[in-house]
Nucleic acid binder design. Structure first.
Length: 766
DNA sequence: GGCCGGGGCATTTTT
DNA sequence: TGCCCCGGCC
């Protein structure tokens, strides 16, 4: 046990060993924060604390998963599995489902994603006949989200003079009405949005002290990662749970707080020591990730911010290269520069494509880099597009599943009542919604008793409604008996959904079919996995509960494939790459022009830039363009002020550019847009471009070998699974459709894979 | 009910 | 520029 403690430096070790009271671990970028958290939990477990008594909260599923598997490597896997470790949302939804009856929800409530909740808000605005130019759904949505995260219910909102006054000032005096309607509609539909998962937990603990007491007793040790990005509700829940024993350890870095626009409250970490005056402070200041130059440059940058916890991050790694700055005339040239620089560095220093990341401020910037990389055949992977579960065809199937598990789900209902088309149009739907809203009941209720609600419809329509009602009722009954996979595949067939998709033979249509098939496949995998864990009765509701909290980042993109990574700086938080290109470093882009209103927002942008730079181990390359197409218009740009915020000792400026000219826009170069381009496309290149476009949506699908026959596999083979990573086959059973392999994975233990669906490649035949 | 075209509009988003 | 939404038309 002692030897894993030996792997820590003194501060890290002290942080791990102190568990008697509250502690704040300020962890500079790359200082081994995850290591401290995992070792701390391992240490507690080794000292006989039950995993059941430890609550560990993270911000991403990925972080939780990784930490769990690291802990499993130190202690017994079966112990690690029983930890209460996960995202705030997943842990608290688990608690809410368990306690649902205490606040008039059903335990299988569904969760609205951002799109569902915006649609509902939009519908409400329309019903109230408000102008959606003034009451912009997306703006209202984020306002509702912000107030929920500040623990303000509609009741409180209405009494809050400041909020109401603010709304009137912005001529949005009826915002509180929308909020209230939205709140009630969610309740009537038996659904929660992401914010509700936190808010209801908090309210539940507040209103039912006996329930809170139970969880207080259970969670004797509380650990929170990324504390700088917690919002007020999250902070409050942690306080509720820790109020008696104060054994709470929060880890974070105030310099990396970048989510205040979503309600994250940097004050949570800055004021932690006021909340817990007796708390101990541990600072992790040695950066193990980056070169000295990168760390020093990042320090010189972040020094420009006023509000922060003093610390001195340092590196004992090599001094390393200076930070390069590449200027380009146009955004096209910027793309080309980056692409060719990647090719060059790869050749000169034997880097893998995986060693490069391109980080940008906005998703819209990705396209130009895609094109540039594609042109010279550099493989890439983009994060932040539509995730699998957000695709229309997938959402449609899921809407059926949702309606079946929760008949009151309004958005699911609206989505599928006429899909596939069954002759129930907007007029009829409006009548149903009208009646439901008027009576304060769910759409399903009206559908089931059309006569009671005086729906003014003709017999033809009534028949169609009845048929739909029957279809769903049948499924709902089947849901009691059938498992998720059986019912799921039935839904896809019996609704005519797959036929509809199948009729479209275009490549896009084909990929839609594939996506639906993949969804059904994942149902199968889900059911078999659960079966393996000894849980035979897996229902659709279980599946929904799991997937509704997944994101783009959780869906495996074959991280072993050799590809350049492209993503926004926000989503790069927590990751590291050997070489990082931070692109589009221009005023009004990075920092964003919308952040320029206040010094506070500029500071957040600066932290964002700090995060970007500190992702790099070896090289940072900053690029900017002097002109760029934005909103269809060419625009002059000047280099970002942030470049000047870095001490020039660490910079390598482009030869043609004196430092003091950095802030002056360069005029007269718009025409350069086309003049620069790389050579004309060859036929081959055009073909490549086209075929890339035509590829199915799963374009970034790895080229994993789909092993169909059991023949090519044998016991002892080492495989790499898309999700579970490396593992060894220990058993093969069944044949054809039912062929299965038992595999012991390095970090996930033994799993049964159904060869029909499993995605893996054989690494080593033994 | 589905398709087309014009107009309006563009941050970041761990869940 | 490109996406999304709506209205008009078949």
């Amino acid at each position: 046990m002692e030897d894993f403690l030996q792997q820590l430096n003194e501060n890290q070790r002290n942080a791990v060993l102190y568990n008697e009271g509250p502690s704040l671990v300020i962890a500079g970028a790359g200082s081994g924060k995850t290591r401290v958290l995992t070792y701390k939990i391992a240490y507690l477990l080794k000292n006989g604390i039950s995993p059941y008594n430890i609550l560990a909260l993270t911000f991403t599923n990925k972080a939780a998963r990784e930490m769990k598997s690291r802990i499993a490597a130190i202690v017994d896997e079966n112990i690690a599995r029983r930890l209460w470790m996960g995202t705030f949302h997943s842990i608290f939804s688990r608690i809410l489902r368990r306690e649902a009856e205490n606040f008039a929800y059903q335990s299988d409530f569904t969760i609205y994603d951002a799109q569902d909740s915006r649609n509902l808000i939009k519908a409400i605005i329309k019903e109230k006949e408000l102008d959606d130019k003034i009451y912009k759904p997306s703006v209202i949505q984020s306002r509702i989200s912000l107030v929920k995260n500040a623990l303000i219910t509609p009741e409180k909102y209405e009494k809050d003079r400041e909020l109401i006054g603010d709304d009137h000032f912005h001529r949005k005096g009826r915002t509180h009405e929308i909020y209230s309607a939205y709140w009630n509609r969610c309740r009537a539909s038996g659904v929660m949005d992401f914010d509700d998962l936190l808010l209801y937990t908090c309210l539940l603990f507040e209103e039912k002290p006996e329930i809170l007491e139970r969880y207080r007793n259970q969670f004797r040790f509380i650990l929170v990662d990324e504390y700088q990005d917690t919002n007020s509700v999250q902070h409050e829940i942690v306080c509720q749970l820790a109020a008696e024993h104060h054994r709470v350890c929060v880890v974070g870095d105030d310099a990396q707080s970048i989510y205040s626009f979503r309600g994250a409250n940097i004050g949570n970490i800055l004021n932690f020591r006021k909340t817990y005056p007796e708390s101990k402070l541990f600072k992790l200041e040695q950066n193990y990730r980056s070169t000295q130059t990168i760390v020093d440059a990042a320090n010189s940058l972040i020094k420009k911010n006023k509000e922060q916890i003093p610390k001195t991050v340092f590196s004992k790694n090599d001094v390393g290269e200076k930070i390069r700055i590449l200027s380009a005339y146009s955004d096209y040239e910027e793309g080309y520069n980056v692409a060719s620089r990647i090719a060059e560095m790869r050749m000169l220093h034997q880097y893998d494509y995986n060693d490069f990341a391109i980080l940008y401020r906005t998703n819209a910037q990705s396209r130009i880099f895609e094109e540039a990389l594609r042109k010279i055949n550099i493989p890439y992977r983009i994060y932040g597009g539509l995730s699998f579960y957000q695709r229309k065809e997938v959402k449609d199937v899921i809407a059926y599943m949702r309606l079946i598990t929760n008949l009151n789900d309004e958005e699911a209902f609206k989505r599928i009542i006429n899909y596939p088309a069954r002759g129930i149009g907007d007029t009829t739907l409006s009548k149903i919604i009208g009646a439901a809203t008027f009576q304060g009941v769910s759409l399903w209720k009206v559908l089931s008793n059309p006569l009671d609600y005086n729906l003014n419809i003709n017999t033809g329509t009534a028949k169609k409604l009845e048929a739909f009602q029957l279809l769903i009722s049948r499924f709902a009954e089947a849901n009691v008996l059938q498992n998720a996979y059986e019912l799921g595949s039935e839904i896809v067939r019996k609704t005519g959904l797959i036929n509809e998709l199948y009729a479209d033979r275009t490549p896009e249509g084909l990929s839609r079919v594939q996506n639906v098939e993949e969804l059904v496949g994942s149902l199968y995998e889900f059911v078999t996995n659960r079966l393996e864990e000894g849980r035979p009765d897996v229902k659709l509701g279980d599946f929904l509960a799991e997937i509704s909290l997944l994101t783009d980042q959780d869906i495996d993109k074959d991280e072993h494939a050799s590809r350049v990574t492209m993503m926004t700086v926000h989503s790069a938080k927590g990751l590291e790459f050997k070489n990082v290109f931070v692109v589009g470093l221009e005023e009004n882009l990075f920092p964003s022009e919308l952040s320029k209103n206040s010094a506070k927002e500029i500071e957040e942008e600066r932290r964002l830039f700090y995060v970007a730079i500190t992702r790099a181990e070896k090289n940072v390359i900053l690029t900017y363009a002097k002109s760029r197409f934005r909103n269809g218009q060419p625009q002059m740009c000047s280099p970002s002020r942030f470049i000047k915020d870095i001490d020039r000792d660490y910079l390598c400026l482009p030869g043609n550019l004196a430092f003091d000219r950095l802030d002056k826009p360069v005029f007269g170069s718009t025409h350069n847009h086309t003049s620069f381009h790389s050579p004309q496309k060859t036929v081959q290149e055009s073909l490549n471009t086209n075929s890339q476009k035509l590829l199915p949506i799963k374009e970034k699908q790895p080229t994993v070998e789909q092993v169909q026959s059991i023949g090519s596999l044998s016991v002892g083979n080492t495989i790499r699974h898309e999700r579970f990573g490396l593992g060894k086959i220990v058993e093969l059973t069944g044949e054809n459709e039912n062929a299965k392999a038992s595999v012991v994975f390095e970090s996930f233990g033994r799993k049964q894979l159904l060869l029909k669906f499993a995605k893996f490649e054989v690494i080593k035949y033994d």
